[in-house]
Amino acid sequence: MRIEAVQGDITREEVDAIVNAANSSLMGGGGVDGAIHRAAGPELLEECMELRRTELPDGLPVGRAVPTAGYRLPARWVIHTVGPNAHRGETDPALLASCFTSSLTVAADIGARTVAFPAVSAGVYGWDADDVARIAVDAVRGFAARQDAASGRDVCGLDVTDVGTTTVEEVRFVLFDERLLHAFSAALG
């Protein structure tokens, strides 16, 4: 899997799927969430409202992911995930890592080979940018190793867990400022 970090606007990424740092209501909000809803158009909100009426009446739990269409975005899909909020005491790194791995599993299940991520929880949810970058990169690399093991490549010592049906070939961390780009570039080594 190719993994890179770039500075830019995630709503303009020409990838199969972009990941939305959503709130549990899925009804849009500020930051990345609001930008994605605005760029996708009102149909995205309508689909999110339908998800709330049917599959997710209590909202999307922290660390989980769910797909919708991308509508007016260049990306075919939006994968919504809810990051942990450090201001509410949600500081477990495993919960943050789950945002990335569950989003990649959803991507593989819907056939997305290229995925763009924001820095989930590094904004108003109060996580340190360096911590988010390290956890995100480790989670994505771990998912890539499990994908390799599932595809028959020799990856010693890994138990293969659900990695979806399609191989995710590229992950791009799309970061809106230089500070985040520096943190993710450092984590990528």
Score class of each variant (00 low, 15 high):
residue 101 T to R: 13
residue 86 A to K: 05
residue 101 T to K: 09
residue 79 I to F: 13
residue 96 L to P: 02
residue 79 I to N: 14
residue 74 P to C: 12
residue 84 P to L: 11
residue 84 P to Q: 11
residue 93 P to T: 05
residue 98 S to G: 07
residue 103 S to I: 00
residue 83 G to H: 13
residue 91 T to H: 03
residue 96 L to M: 01
residue 106 V to L: 03
residue 85 N to M: 01
residue 57 P to M: 09
residue 95 L to F: 00
residue 95 L to P: 00
residue 108 A to D: 06
residue 67 P to L: 14
residue 74 P to E: 12
residue 78 V to C: 08
residue 107 A to N: 00
residue 98 S to V: 07
residue 72 R to P: 04
residue 111 G to N: 03
residue 76 R to W: 10
residue 100 F to I: 10
residue 56 L to T: 14
residue 63 G to A: 11
residue 109 D to K: 10
residue 84 P to W: 05
residue 80 H to R: 07
residue 76 R to E: 15
residue 88 R to I: 00
residue 101 T to L: 09
residue 93 P to Y: 00
residue 110 I to C: 07
residue 84 P to Y: 09
residue 112 A to N: 06
residue 57 P to C: 13
residue 110 I to E: 07
residue 56 L to N: 15
residue 83 G to E: 03
residue 84 P to G: 14
residue 63 G to R: 04
residue 71 Y to Q: 10
residue 108 A to M: 01
residue 89 G to N: 05
residue 97 A to I: 04
residue 80 H to E: 05
residue 78 V to P: 13
residue 70 G to E: 10
residue 95 L to W: 03
residue 71 Y to S: 12
residue 56 L to D: 13
residue 92 D to A: 02
residue 98 S to K: 07
residue 90 E to F: 11
residue 95 L to C: 03
residue 63 G to Q: 07
residue 57 P to A: 04
residue 111 G to T: 01
residue 65 A to E: 15
residue 71 Y to R: 10
residue 88 R to M: 13
residue 84 P to V: 12
residue 97 A to V: 01
residue 98 S to Y: 03
residue 94 A to T: 08
residue 102 S to V: 01
residue 62 V to Y: 04
residue 95 L to H: 03
residue 72 R to C: 06
residue 96 L to R: 00
residue 78 V to W: 08
residue 114 T to K: 08
residue 106 V to W: 02
residue 94 A to N: 11
residue 67 P to H: 08
residue 114 T to M: 11
residue 67 P to K: 09
residue 80 H to T: 09
residue 87 H to M: 01
residue 113 R to Q: 12
residue 76 R to C: 12
residue 72 R to I: 02
residue 93 P to L: 02
residue 95 L to R: 10
residue 57 P to V: 15
residue 94 A to Y: 06
residue 93 P to D: 01
residue 105 T to N: 07
residue 66 V to A: 11
residue 99 C to M: 01
residue 111 G to R: 11
residue 82 V to G: 07
residue 68 T to V: 08
residue 92 D to M: 04
residue 90 E to P: 01
residue 98 S to Q: 09
residue 85 N to S: 06
residue 92 D to G: 06
residue 111 G to P: 06
residue 98 S to P: 05
residue 89 G to P: 03
residue 58 D to Y: 14
residue 64 R to F: 13
residue 75 A to S: 15
residue 109 D to A: 09
residue 69 A to K: 15
residue 79 I to D: 12
residue 62 V to F: 10
residue 73 L to M: 13
residue 92 D to V: 00
residue 109 D to M: 06
